[in-house]
Design a protein around this nucleic acid. Structure first.
Length: 264
DNA sequence: ATTCTCACCTGCGGGC
DNA sequence: TGCCCGCAGGTGAGAA
């Protein structure tokens, strides 16, 4: 589920309730991608100041240090005054005086990592090379064009790498490229000004719409990305020209496109 | 330096 | 039905 819109919708769903809360305890299930980096006991007594997002990472700001959360491929967070006993796929619980935050993650590609302060090496490792935030003013068209010109990789792989712009995952990359009428296999540096501008706008538009849909649907991400134009629609008619949607593999990931609307 | 492949882990759907 | 295979929305590490 979790590309930028899902992460952002998740963030909004509990930030207002957890901000200001006092941590009273925490517990871990099976190992996640990385060790927590501190004892769960040491979290007790800390106060949660707020929840920020950088790319697909959530940053739980505490009065002392912060917790970095990632949902991986299959993670989801829930927050409620009291949650039922954890199941086999619940791997992190944060108990606060305002409610309980729980990470559910069957595949365990997700993570919860403690950072003692804003300059901790782990933050640099995880966030240090992330690209522009597509929904922020920081998402400059000029910088985007320059980034395209500097890359020999295909545009799809460049987007997924997150070094130029963050938050675009496998679904929204295909969708944005469809909107911009660019084939996923196109070498990034071969994308001219007009197409670059369309893609820049398409990325923002696709993500914004998904956040809005996720926000109105709330907690039903399926409905939010259910009506895709190309993703998962191999062989089905293009919504624009009725040509069957095609699929290619790019670095172990599937890309979907319309062979006619997205000419090479 | 960039770019590409692999690995991490579990569940599910399709084909036999 | 049951087994085996491939695939799934991410991304850092290490190899080319």
């Amino acid at each position: 589920m979790p590309e930028l819109p899902e992460v952002e919708v998740t963030r909004r769903s509990f930030e207002g309730r957890i901000a200001g809360a006092r941590i009273v305890g925490a517990s871990l299930g099976k190992p996640l991608r990385w060790p927590l980096g501190c004892s769960v006991e040491s979290l007790a007594g800390r106060r949660v100041l707020g929840v920020d997002r950088r790319g697909k990472y959530l940053l739980l700001r505490l009065d002392q240090g912060l917790l970095v959360l990632h949902l991986g491929m299959s993670g989801s967070l829930s927050f409620a005054p009291a949650l039922p006993a954890g199941g086999p796929h619940d791997h992190f619980d944060l108990l606060t005086d305002a409610g309980q935050l729980r990470l559910h993650d069957p595949r365990r590609f997700g993570a919860v990592v403690w950072a003692p302060d804003d300059h901790a090496p782990v933050l640099d490792k995880l966030l240090g090379r992330l690209g522009m935030e597509p929904l922020a003013d920081d998402f400059s068209l000029a910088a985007f064009k320059a980034g395209l010109k500097a890359s020999r990789a295909s545009i799809k792989r460049l987007l997924l790498a997150g070094r130029l712009v963050v938050g675009v995952g496998n679904i929204y990359a295909s969708e944005a490229l469809f909107l911009a009428r660019i084939r996923p296999t196109t070498q990034a540096r071969r994308i001219g000004p007009a197409r670059a501008e369309r893609l820049h706008a398409a990325i923002r538009s696709v993500l914004e719409q998904a956040v809005t849909a996720g926000g109105s649907t709330l907690r039903d991400f399926q409905a939010a990305d259910g009506r895709s134009d190309v993703y998962g629609r191999e062989g089905a008619p293009c919504h624009t020209c009725s040509t069957p949607i095609a699929m290619v593999r790019q670095g172990q990931r599937s890309s979907f496109f319309c062979p006619v609307c997205q000419r090479p």
